[in-house]
Simulated assay, not measured.
Amino acid sequence: MFYYLIRKLLFLIDPEKSHTLVFKYLNVKYIQILIGLFLKPIPSIPIKCMGLKFPNKVGLAAGMDKNGEYINFFSKLGFGFIELGTVTPLPQIGNQKPRMFRIFQSEAIINNMGFNNLGIDNLIYNIKKSKFKGIIGVNIGKNKNTSIKNATNDYLICIEKIYYYASYIAINISSPNTKNLRNLQYGILFKNLLKNIKIKQKEMHQKYSKYVPIAIKISPDLSKNEIIYISNQLIKFKIDAVIATNTTSDHLYKKNKKKIKGGLSGLPLQKKSNDVVSILHKQLKRKIPIIGVGGINSLHSAKKKIKLGAELIQIYSGLIYHGPKLIRNIIKKL
């Protein structure tokens, strides 16, 4: 009830401004001490995935903490893992504001952020100074000004820099908010990306004597044949996991009679995401684990995603609409 009262006030403010405001105060040391007193630790229900041991199946999806500024706060909510980013080699401001919109009646969010972040070096600094010893995934992307032809280089730069500090690395080639980014999911561009990523992973493995799994995050707007093609390539190149899915650009929500630009997340994404998870599960035959994300807003929807084939799940919009209680309820009863 307390969270819903706070939410009512925050929803009177522009979404991006309220996000910044909330986390600015949640990062205050004394606030974190109070949170620690009220939110008791959740018993671990370990699961092994990607060769890593997760305390539970529920993680924070990328996008909530792009720059790793709130790791200590999110670690107190009970998440089994935290995915930071999306982060790019160089800092960038992202797309023009306003670029985040709530669709309250649908429990949805549309964002057109465009990988706004402070760069990979800043993220490494924040990871190093955090006190969290759990599993941290780092979601990486390409800079806006890098051509699709040269995009692989941006991913390799990020992998080389973040490898030592990440528990796993997520390759974001499916955001609808960076021009032509989704082209990397197809044909020779996709094959070359996977090939070069695996070469870099092997190089870093030898350098640090540490194997860091790599996951590919895909779009919910792919056709069945495209998902089958992607599945085959993931198996061929021995990718460690697939994250299904990113946000969808397939929506008709409008503001001032114009379609809102950006990717839709939240409840309306649930079916699309579930369909992709289901197809992946049939094609991958458990050779590669699936991390399911999209539209999880209840214990029931979390169970559904896992039943369809996800070994781990992630939450983003559900946390905004229902607060920390949702996370803890799912973890305890899953």
Score class of each variant (00 low, 15 high):
residue 7 R to W: 06
residue 12 L to G: 05
residue 13 I to L: 12
residue 17 K to L: 11
residue 22 V to D: 01
residue 24 K to R: 15
residue 25 Y to P: 02
residue 67 N to P: 06
residue 83 E to T: 14
residue 83 E to R: 09
residue 90 L to G: 03
residue 104 F to K: 15
residue 117 N to F: 02
residue 124 I to W: 00
residue 126 N to Y: 10
residue 133 K to C: 05
residue 136 I to T: 01
residue 142 K to L: 00
residue 144 K to H: 13
residue 153 N to T: 13
residue 159 I to L: 09
residue 164 Y to S: 14
residue 164 Y to P: 08
residue 176 P to I: 11
residue 179 K to H: 10
residue 189 L to W: 06
residue 190 F to L: 15
residue 192 N to E: 10
residue 195 K to A: 09
residue 197 I to Q: 04
residue 197 I to L: 15
residue 201 Q to D: 10
residue 204 M to D: 07
residue 208 Y to E: 08
residue 215 A to W: 08
residue 221 D to K: 07
residue 222 L to G: 08
residue 241 A to H: 05
residue 244 A to V: 09
residue 249 S to A: 14
residue 252 L to F: 14
residue 254 K to S: 13
residue 255 K to M: 13
residue 259 K to T: 12
residue 259 K to G: 05
residue 259 K to V: 13
residue 279 I to K: 08
residue 284 L to I: 10
residue 285 K to D: 13
residue 287 K to F: 03
residue 289 P to D: 10
residue 290 I to Y: 08
residue 291 I to S: 05
residue 295 G to C: 05
residue 296 I to H: 02
residue 305 K to L: 05
residue 309 G to E: 07
residue 311 E to A: 00
residue 314 Q to S: 04
residue 315 I to F: 06
residue 318 G to R: 07
residue 320 I to E: 09
residue 323 G to H: 05
residue 325 K to Q: 13
residue 326 L to R: 10
residue 326 L to C: 12
